[in-house]
Each structure stands twice: as C-alpha cells, then as structure tokens.
Amino acid sequence: MCLAIPAKITRIDPATDIALVAIGAVSKEVSLALVEDVAEGDYVLVHVGYALNKLSAEEAEHTLRLIREIGLLEEEADADLVANDPPAEDQS
C-alpha cells in the first residue's frame, strides 16, 4: 500500500530545485526535478523525496482529510519536527 502524501510548497530554492513542503505540521525537503510549473503555495504529491505532480487545493485537502480520518496524519503533532528526506540518500 503505497501512499503519496499531498504537501504544500512553502519555499523553493531555484538554485537547487529543492522545495520545503509542509505535510500537516511537518516540514520536509523534496526535489522538484520531476515537476514543472510549480510555485510556492501549490500542493504536490510527494513520494520518496520527490514531488510527483501538482494537485488542486481541493484535491489535496480531500486526500489529507481521508488520511487524517484513518489516523495516519495528525495536524498538531510533531510541530517542531523538520524531516529531511533527500532523494539521493533515502528513497526506495
């Protein structure tokens, strides 16, 4: 069962094509190398360190709501966590 989680882009470093994204209350770095035309504020699907494709805010919220419903994502927990999941070192 392979979940890809909608994440909101909060910052983009154009020099490295790396974005900081928010998944619930957790921040992660992901590579934007595989997607085009994304901007801060957009939602993307994230899988093993890469942004896969852009989602509408409505689609993203719908999926996140479902993931929360089944207890796999908590909004308030881990507020201080910053998880790095760089594609070159930790991926499947």
Partner: peptide, 9 residues
C-alpha cells in the same frame, strides 16, 4: 504520526 507512508528500517 509524522510519516504516513511509513518506511522500512
């Protein structure tokens, strides 16, 4: 939970 997809350790 901060890692919904989970991972293999």
């Amino acid at each position: 939970m901060s890692d919904p997809p989970g991972r293999l350790k």
